[in-house]
Design a protein around this nucleic acid. Sequence first.
DNA 1: AAGTGGTCTAGACCACTCC
DNA 2: GAGTGGTCTAGACCACTTA
Lengths: 235, 235
Amino acid sequence: MTQPPLAGHGWQSVRDAVLDRIRSRDWVPGQPIPHEADLAREFGCARATVNRALRALAEAGLIERRRRAGSRVSAQPVRKATLDIPVIRAEITGKGLGYGYSLMSMATATPPPDVRAIMQTAPDRPLLHVEALHLADGRPYAVENRWLDTEAVPEAATADFFVQSPNEWLVQNVPFEGGDIAFSARAAGGPEASALDCPEGSALFLIERTTWRAGRVLTTVRITYAPGHRLHTRL
Amino acid sequence: MTQPPLAGHGWQSVRDAVLDRIRSRDWVPGQPIPHEADLAREFGCARATVNRALRALAEAGLIERRRRAGSRVSAQPVRKATLDIPVIRAEITGKGLGYGYSLMSMATATPPPDVRAIMQTAPDRPLLHVEALHLADGRPYAVENRWLDTEAVPEAATADFFVQSPNEWLVQNVPFEGGDIAFSARAAGGPEASALDCPEGSALFLIERTTWRAGRVLTTVRITYAPGHRLHTRL
DNA sequence: AAGTGGTCTAGACCACTCC
DNA sequence: GAGTGGTCTAGACCACTTA
C-alpha cells in the first residue's frame, strides 16, 4: 500500500509525508530511509525537491544524513530549539511595556582574572567596564554588566552610554563574526540585588555572551534578569 | 569598485560576500539590497544559488526578505541561537561522565492547578506523576519532575520507569508534533535541595518543557539542574 | 570503486504584496 | 498590475565516505 501521491504541493508536502512515516513508525529510529532518488520517483517530483525536504528534517534533528551512507531516522533525536536574542529594548517594548535605561557606572579598570581569561587580554591591560540598568515600565528588568575592549572596538569612542545602552549601541554599530552564549542561574549578589530591587540571594536567570571579530574578543557581557524572568521558545 | 567575483565556489561564497558588504556598511541596516537577479548577474551564478545564500542569511536573522518588497538588511538583527536539547543521558555521557538514573517516586495523582492548566485536563482527572534523578559520575545532575497524560500516551503502559527515565523513554517511543520550552531560574525547594544535595534556596537553572501531539498535551516536565549548570551554545 | 548526498544551472511558473 | 522572492524541474558534476 502506497500513500496517496502527495497531500499538497511543494517540498513541504514531501517533508510532511516523510514525517508521517517516521511518526507512524513506518520508518524506525536508527534505520535508513530510501534514497533521494527513490523518494523523488515515488513522490513524482524532482530530486532537488526531496533534497529540500530532507534537509529541513535534518536541520530539525529528526534525520541524519551522510554521504554514501544515506539518510536514517535519528535514534536519539536531538531537538534543536531556536532562541531569539533580541536587543533588550526590543524585548521590553515587544511586551508592550515602556522601556527605561539608566547608566549605573562606567570606568576603565583592569578586569578580574575570569574576565581577563575570557577577553584574552594582557594581565594589566585596562578595559572599559559598564554597568547599566534596563527598566520595564519603570521597574528593574535586567542588569547589564559589560567589559569592552576599546582597542578592539575603536568606534566605542563615539558612543554615549549615558543615553544609550551598550547593548543597543553595539548591536547597531559593531558587526561581529561570532559569539558564545551561555544560560545559567545564580544567587543575587549585593549589587544585583539592590539594582534589581530583590532580596540578596534570590535566584536569578542570567545570560553571558562573548562576541568577537577578526579573531579578537570585542566584549563580554552578563545580563542578569529580575526574578521570575523566563526565556521562552517553541519546538 | 566591485569586489573580486567570488572568494571560492558555491552558495557559501555568495553568502560570505553579502556578509562582507553588510559588515563593511556597504549595505546599511534598514536599507534594501540588490535583487536576487542582479546579484546573480554580478556574481556570475544562477539565481537559485543567490536564493540559497540569502535564505541562509535570513534564517540567521541578518536580512529580512519580503516578496515584492525585496530584501533588506535587518535594522535590529535578532540573533538566533540554536540550542541542542539532547536526552539527559546523552548530555551526561557526552561530557565523558558516567550516567546514573534513579526513580524517586511514581504515582497517579490529581495535578496542582498550574499543571492542570498546562495539561489542559479536567479538574479531577488524575495524571501520572514521576520524579526521577539523573546522576553524573554518581553525583546528582538533574531532577526530572514530570506529569504524563496516560490517556494521551497509551504506550506508557509498556514503559518501566524503574529502569529507564521518562525523558529517555518518551524521546524513543513517543513522537510528538510540537512543544514549548522555557528556561528560568528558581530557588531550590526542600525536595530538590535534598535530591540535588545542595542547600535549600540555592539558585538553580531549570528547563520546563511541554509537548503535544494531535492537539493534545502529552506531558509536561520540569528539569532542575544542580547548581552551576550552564547551557551553552554559539552564535 | 561506487554510491550517496551536496550543489549548480537555466529556465519556468507561481504567490504574494505593494503601488 | 507589476515586480519580487519562493519554488520546481531535469540534468549534470562533484565531494565525500564507506564497503
